[in-house]
Amino acid sequence: MHIPDGMLEARTWIPAWLGSAGVLAYGIRRVRQTLSDGTIVMMAVMAALIFALQMLNFPVAGGTSGHFAGGAAAAIVLGLWPAMLVMAAVLTVQALFFADGGITALGANMLTLAVVAPLVGWTVHRIIVRPTSSRGARLGASFAAAWLSCVSAAIVAALMLWLSGRAPLVPVVGVMSMWHALIGIGEGAITAGLVGYLLAVRPDLLDDAGRPIDMRVARKALVGLGALALVAAGLSFVASSSPDGLEYAYEHVGGALADVTLLSSPMPDYLMPGIGNETLAGILAGIVGVIVTGVLAYTLLTALRARRAADTAE
């Protein structure tokens, strides 16, 4: 189930829209440059396949069920940029033709399922899998990639809900990641099964999965992500420190209605005492997140480079 309209505040869904539109526009350019007409047609059929596979559901806990999302599987099999476009197209069809997930929330849904999920899945898989990896290692990598992509997409969704003032930070991140840690098991098992089947039947269809990670591409992707995170942190700061134009106008024009507090309270969270601290906490969280991501990425890249150097030296 995707985020419907009306749940996210403008300070969340507008940056999410811009961010995912930017990533996808770049992806479209890359795909057009690098893929042949035939590959693009295949990619389009695979998009229909991912949508169909999302009907695979499995029991999770307490009588509820989760369903396959496919972001990591698409990234492992089709490659990073095609997977992002495929997932974005699936979400767009679901919003436009099936009214599943909102249209203003489409950017947010794309950010989680079409950007973060394939990116995390692809990166994890690429880092673990070598050309010489055994079948077991590949299946393990697929499982880990799908599980992590599921959990990290859930965390990003939780952060957007928090940024919209829908829920307090720690509980919403906790609940969402715990829940998707369970769903991720199903996602991971199906992804590993899919990859295992392909390895046995048509190993030629797996994207260049064994190729070592291209450091320049990875670095570019990480720099892009970092910039995006910074912009998002900045925007959320601007958005939360001053009411946006519409709300400003509303407060002034609608001043006469102010006594009907229940009906007109446009921004109840701004009326709460201690908002300054909350804003500060939000920015701090954003900055800390960016720094932590940066440090992690740097460590990872250095380790990888060392490993690649060792590989070529052998």
């Binding site: 695979m46 396949l49 590993a192 099964g193 295992g196």
Partner: peptide, 18 residues
């Protein structure tokens, strides 16, 4: 067992769709 066969099923449909 169900999850494992779901994975193969997805792989099978993948090859057919391809």
């Amino acid at each position: 067992a169900l999850l494992r066969s779901s994975g193969s099923l997805a792989g099978n449909l993948f090859v057919r769709s391809y």
